[in-house]
């Protein structure tokens, strides 16, 4: 029924990159995430699936403290990156976000040129010593974002002038340019055609060699193709978390089964 995973799920005994314990998230009085505990592994692609509004984006944003920018949002519980509690007072969210990059659900290019969009992160973090190095970083990032061929002749054009799908890939390129250790991607392929989707999936697979990737998706096929681990969210609860192959072929929870066979959601 579903496409077979691209490769055997060869998840060996891997180290935990991000660990969450009993995480609760409230928006004012709304309880958006309830008791979520999960271990996200290093050098692994994890996909978050679940019906719309179940809290996938909310939980994703907890992992790099993006929820700090929402006044009414409150996060409880413990989330640690490499064993270090990221909500501890001493932790600088700015440093954290440099390590845990994010691609947002809606493409949000800066009103700057395509080049400056990608160069933004590397410049801030002083990753290039000179212009040539920066050029190299930008080109590499745009190539990984599968958009280089389309924009190489107009790097000075505003990023906001690109099509929706191109903007999405530009944002992916912008996020990988800073070389984060963990990349959080919120529906990165929602506006992409099958060719670009395949390219982005290739990128995700490539990133897995070095980093840990978390991807939110509404496409079961995509989750099955790119991820080794899958987490199913429902109404703010983490219902089931396990090997992708196991979730899709042999789910333990009846809600998971209903969702992946298309009965809820």
């Amino acid at each position: 029924m579903y496409d077979a995973p691209l490769r055997k799920t060869d998840v060996e005994a891997q180290t935990t990159k991000i660990a969450a314990r009993d995480v609760q998230v409230y928006y004012g009085d709304t309880h958006a995430i309830k008791d979520v505990s999960v271990d996200l592994l290093d050098k692994t692609v994890t996909s978050f699936i679940g019906p719309s509004g179940c809290g996938k984006s909310t939980f994703l944003r907890c992992l790099n403290r993006m929820n700090d920018t929402i006044d009414i949002c409150r996060v409880e519980g413990l989330i640690s990156l490499d064993g270090q509690d990221i909500y501890e007072k001493r932790v600088d969210p700015v440093q954290l976000r440099a390590k845990v990059g994010m691609v947002f659900q809606k493409p949000n290019p800066f009103p700057k040129s395509i080049y400056d969009n990608v160069a933004y992160g590397p410049k801030i973090h002083g990753m290039a010593r000179n212009k040539a190095e920066l050029d190299e970083i930008v080109e590499k990032a745009l190539r990984r974002g599968a958009i280089w061929d389309e924009v190489k002749d107009r790097l000075d054009a505003p990023g906001t002038g690109l099509s929706g799908g191109q903007q999405q890939r530009l944002c992916i390129a912008r996020a990988v340019a800073t070389e984060p250790e963990v990349l959080l991607m919120d529906e990165p392929c929602s506006a992409l055609d099958p060719i670009a989707t395949a390219q982005v999936e290739e990128l995700i697979d490539e990133l897995r060699e070095q980093y840990s990737v978390v991807i939110v998706t509404h496409s079961m096929q995509q989750a099955a193709r790119v991820s080794q681990k899958t987490a199913f969210f429902h109404l703010g609860n983490l219902v089931e978390y396990g090997e992708t192959s196991q979730i899709f072929t042999n789910p333990t929870d009846p809600r998971t089964e209903s969702y992946i066979t298309g009965r809820i959601g």
């Binding site: 440093q95 954290l96 440099a98 944002c171």
Partner: peptide, 13 residues
């Protein structure tokens, strides 16, 4: 738009 701020913070600015 807030999304521009998010984009920038998300890159560690």
């Amino acid at each position: 738009p807030q999304s521009l701020r998010d984009g920038s913070y998300g890159l560690g600015a």
